[in-house]
Every structure is written in structure tokens, then in C-alpha cells.
Design a protein around this nucleic acid. Structure first.
Lengths: 348, 348
DNA sequence: CTGAAAGCGCTTACAG
DNA sequence: CTGAAAGCGCTTACAG
């Protein structure tokens, strides 16, 4: 079945069927109904490739994510992708997924959907090489960075309330009478981690808890990709230095899980001796022992907002760059609740 | 730049350029070189949509996964997807991802890439409604089921050595002097779990460990989707029944993590009082306390094999159905190693 | 081994 | 509000 067949059966021209299909232009109610019935009766679906070729639009959105993010420690961007997929489906767009390594050189590393221009726009999730962002900018394809920024280019963004989230987490710790609050985090060049760290410091300042030397003895900051390994090493390093801490704020949940592991191995009670706070609220955060207090980030919502922003860009070209902030919430669980009965399964 | 421009610059016909592009037919070495140079010089890439329309092929593979698998407890199929993506890229195919719910009715739930026939073939990862499989069969599109089967249809398959894996896991437990070996698993209708359970029972039979009443008092089998919650409840149920166990084999790692949590809360020492074995070797398996002994399943390899099988089907239509078995390996970690020094961080 | 030409199934000005 | 026709950029028999 082609559009021609539908036109013939419905007794109208091909143009009219096309107008009905794309839901545009002026078609009389009567004609529309008639055509729609024939389409439904024959279970007709236009061929995407023909539409693409004729219209010059692809109906695809490229989704770029780093190898590391997708394949190692992160259970974060998968959910962003899922949200994006669900939103894209509404407007009948397809998501074309690809991964990039930690270096980028055109054309060897250029995602193939960019070479053939098989996408109308691109979503970048998480950290990628700056050169890739510059390339996207240079070829002037509409694109959105999710949970990532370029140091100088002004781009469309979907960002998390990292600063506020960390601030609230530390305020919570302080309200629970913790005062020697450390920070452990990897991926320190990632803007989200930097902002979380900044929120942490502001909260300490605000409470007058900043130590004379700036509190650097309480900080373990590493450039490497965030992981549980870094949390493990972070705690061990601080303790081995003899630093007195009664709480630790982590760059994200994965890191916090490593902290919990190290504390467990050293028989340090959480939360009575040391409290632990994560960030992201990945699924495993609720499964740790004790269950992890963390800052909830609505990951699917990030994907949804990214796709909506893409549609806006496509519909209103030349409207400048836009930023959408994603709201966070502190989730208080057992890892920061000092007074508790041990060995009791209440989380179920 | 279009194929016409390339032909003009190279001084050949459009047909010749097309032949060079698709790397088919007979083109003289000299002509080929000449054309390839022009293509490279102008950084020309053919428009997919035009190729698709003219050839009748889409260059896309549909990837279907259930909502539950992608969005809840599973960190398994994401890796299968990644492997598939990497392999598809080699032949310049795109993967079109979609999720399906736990019921399926045509046409409401039909993935849109099937409606418009935007894919040449389909990969189904994990459990999906039987009706969806029947629909794929009925519209006679080439498709491969990964880690899943239909009860009566004969389809192309990529399967795990579940039986052998479970058999080896239990043999290992027996060699470590465990003898009261329980099985805890969800998704009991899923063929992989059934096979794992069958392997477990065969190993017990083989060792003469089967109890008079068939050992059902050692089994906790649930139809619900596999999760850590099920592992938690499974252990609690068995213990509350007063069943004596010294080891537990789980349907998968996620379930095993729930078991570990329950045992920890009841202050039952793992592995000295009870050993725990998982299946899948998800990333978190190495991060649990104690680290989880499990059966390694090469998840990316499953995706790679699925895509290769798809290509075979596309290249050799009518060659019947094929099954590819994915090899597994037992990974022995701390959760089954009775004699160990406690509180020592050796896994790093 | 190479070229001329039809055709894939749509969209989009344009004319009426 | 509707129709006729050009055109999107390729592939593929077919002829030579």
C-alpha cells in the first residue's frame, strides 16, 4: 500500500492524503474523515524513508553518551535515555544511540549519524570530549547538553540543581549534629561534581564550620571517572591520614557505596560514628546497608526535558540558547539517622 | 553534495559511483580508486533515506525490550544492547530501541518501527509477551530472541548456558562441603530461570543430595519479576520455616543481593554459616559484602551474536532457524569461600 | 566493466 | 479547499 493507493481508494489526490497524514494545511472535515477511514481500514503507514527524502527531515535525534558512562559504573544515563525515548516516541521521532571514547578527532571519531546527517538534532548525555561539542557547534546542528557543559561555548543545556542539592544535604547533616563533614568525589572536572562540591562548601561556610586552613584536610578530590573504587580509596586515605570525620558527602551514589564498603571493613559504624550521603538516588542507594541518604535526581525527567528542548529548537530555529534546570530532593534514609535500632528491617 | 556531483567530478556515471559506494559489482581498480578519492576529498556521505527508498532496505534493526527489564532491577540487557550497537555499527546499521509492557495487543502496543516497516529485522531482549513474538512471526520479519523463548514457535535464538552454569555453581558448593543447598528465584516462568533451576537440581541428584520429598522445602520459587526483594523474602521465608540451609543458589545476582541483605540483617555469617551464589555477574556482584560468587554471562557478547545472527538471516533468507549458545564461567569470590580471614580488603 | 533511465514513495510549491 | 507535477538522492536491472 502506498499513498497512491490510498488516494485512489479514497477518491482524492495524493496531495490531499499527504496533507491529512501530516495533519497540516486546510482539508475539509469531510474529506479528512474519509481519508482517515481508508488509512485506518488498510492499516496504512507511510514509509519513513520516502518522507525523509522528500521533506529533507530525518525524524531522528542522535543520542551521544561516553563509553565510560554507559558501560561502567553509571546506572544514571540509561534512565535519561529511557525518558528521552518515551518522549521522542510521542512525536514519532527515533533516537539513534552512539557512544564516544574519551578523545575525539574528526572524522575518525565522528558519530556516523552526523556524517550522513541522519539526524535533525543531537542530545549529548554526560561528559564527552570538548572537541565533540565544538564539532557539533561548528556544523551548526541543533544540540542539547545534558548534565554537562562546555567551558566557553554557549549551548542549550539540561542541568541538575547540584548546588542546591548538596547544600541541602549538608544542612541536613548539620541538623543531625554532624560537624566534621568530609567530601569524597571523582570526576572532579565534571561540572556537576564541581557544583556539588561548591554546595558542600557553602553549607559549611554558612554554618561557620569552615576550618582555618579551608578544610582541605577533609577533602578527597580525584580527576578519575567517578566510581565506588574512588569512594573506597577516599575514605581509607582520609582515615589513614588521621583526619577526624563524622560524616562524608560523596560526589555521587556510586562513590558513596565505596565509602560504605570501606567503613564496613574497618568496622566503623554508619551512621553512629560516620554518616554517609550520596547524590543521584540510583536504584542501589535504597539497597545498601545501611540504606543511603542521598539527593534524588529525576533521571527520566532529564531525558524528557532534553527531547522537549530539541523539539522547541526544531520548531523555533534562531530563538537562541536555552537552559532547563532539573529539580532535586533530599531523600533521608538510614545512613544519616543517628538514633536507630540496629538490625531491624524497617525499610521494607 | 550528491551522488551526481561526485559522478561529474570523477568523470564517471552515477551508476559507477553507486557501485563503488556499495562495494559491489565489477568496477575496474583504476575507476574505483578515482571515485574513492573524489568521495574522500569532498567528505561525501550518501543520504540514508535515499538509499533506503531506492533499495527497499532500511539499514535499521529494531531492538525490543520490556519496560521492566530496562527500567527496574536489571543491569543486564543494557549491556546486551551496547554489544549489539557496537556490532551493528560495523555494517552501518542503526538500532531502533523500543520498550513494551507486560501485555501486548496489536495494533495498540505494536512498536512503531514495525508498523511503518522501518526495520529490516528485530532483536528481542529478554522476556516479552508471547503475543508479541507471535506477531513478529506472523508478519514474517526476521527476528532473534535473546535470552527468551516462545513455548511453541520455532524461532532464531541466542541463549545462555544456564543449565551448565547452575550445574557448575552447585558442584562448586558441594566441593566446598556445603550440602543443604537452597534455591531462591523470581521470574520462574522465564526459561533462563527454569534452566538454572534444572541445573541446580541435576547437580544435587548427581551428588546424591536430593532429599526424600524432592527437596521442595529448600526451594523458594516466585513468578514475579526477579528482584532483590524476592531474594530478601526468599531467605526470610526459608529461615522462618525453620529449614536448615548452609548455601543458597539464586536465580540471578539481583536476587542474590537481596539474600545477602537478609542474611546480614539476621547476623548470619556469609560464607561461614551460609554460602550465596548468584548468576549473571552484573557489576555489583563484585561490590557486595562479601563479594558474590556467581556465574559470569558475557552480556555484550550476547548482543554481538544477536546482531551477527540477524545479518546472517538477512544475507541467507530461508536458511531456517538458528540457535547460538553463549558460554558461561563460574567466578568464585568470597561468598562461597569458607576459610577466609575476615575484615581484610583483598579484593582490591 | 560502464552508462542511461526508470523508479522507490513521499512532500511541496504552484495553480486553480 | 483540492489536484497535477516536479523533485528529493539514491539503486537496479538492462543494454552495450
Amino acid at each position: 500500500m502506498t499513498i497512491k493507493d490510498i488516494a485512489r481508494v479514497a477518491g482524492v489526490s495524493v496531495s490531499t492524503v499527504s496533507l491529512v497524514l501530516s495533519n497540516r494545511g486546510y482539508v475539509s472535515e469531510k474529506t479528512r474523515k474519509k481519508v482517515e477511514k481508508v488509512i485506518a481500514d488498510h492499516n496504512y503507514h507511510p514509509r519513513q524513508s520516502a518522507r525523509q527524502l522528500a521533506s529533507g527531515r530525518t525524524g531522528n535525534i542522535g543520542f551521544i553518551i561516553s563509553d565510560l558512562h554507559l558501560s561502567s559504573t553509571e546506572y544514571f544515563y540509561t534512565r535519561v535515555l529511557l525518558g528521552a525515548e518515551i518522549e521522542a516516541r510521542i512525536k514519532d521521532y527515533y533516537l539513534l544511540l552512539t557512544t564516544v571514547g574519551d578523545s575525539f578527532h574528526h572524522p575518525g571519531d565522528t558519530p556516523r549519524f552526523l556524517k550522513g546527517r541522519d539526524v535533525d538534532a543531537v542530545i549529548v548525555a554526560g561528559g564527552v570530549p570538548a572537541k565533540l561539542v565544538e564539532y557539533l557547534h561548528q556544523v551548526s546542528i541543533p544540540f542539547v547538553l545534558v548534565d554537562h557543559m562546555h567551558h566557553s561555548l554557549d549551548t542549550n543545556l539540561v542541568l541538575i540543581e547540584n548546588f542546591k542539592g548538596a547544600l541541602q544535604a549538608v544542612r541536613h547533616l548539620i541538623s543531625q549534629d554532624y560537624s566534621r563533614i568530609a567530601f569524597v568525589g571523582g570526576s572532579f572536572r565534571h561540572p556537576s561534581i564541581q557544583e556539588r562540591f561548591a554546595g558542600y562548601r557553602s553549607a559549611l561556610d554558612e554554618a561557620g564550620l569552615t576550618s582555618p586552613n579551608g578544610g582541605t584536610e577533609l577533602q578527597y578530590l580525584i580527576k578519575e571517572e567517578t566510581s565506588s573504587q574512588i569512594g573506597y580509596e577516599g575514605i581509607c586515605t582520609l582515615l589513614d591520614r588521621g583526619v577526624k570525620i563524622d560524616a562524608v558527602v560523596c560526589g555521587n551514589d556510586t562513590t558513596a557505596i565505596g565509602c560504605l564498603q570501606a567503613l564496613r571493613e574497618r568496622n566503623i559504624d554508619v551512621p553512629n560514628s560516620v554518616a554517609v550521603v550520596g547524590f543521584d538516588d540510583i536504584m542501589y542507594a535504597a539497597k545498601t546497608a545501611p540504606a543511603l541518604t542521598t539527593v534524588h535526581v529525576p533521571k527520566m525527567e532529564m531525558g524528557i526535558q532534553a527531547v522537549r528542548l530539541v523539539f522547541d529548537l526544531l520548531e523555533h530555529p534562531g530563538s537562541g540558547v536555552h537552559t532547563r534546570l532539573i529539580h532535586t530532593d533530599l531523600i533521608v534514609r538510614d545512613s544519616t539517622s543517628k538514633i536507630q535500632v540496629l538490625s531491624e528491617a524497617v525499610s521494607h
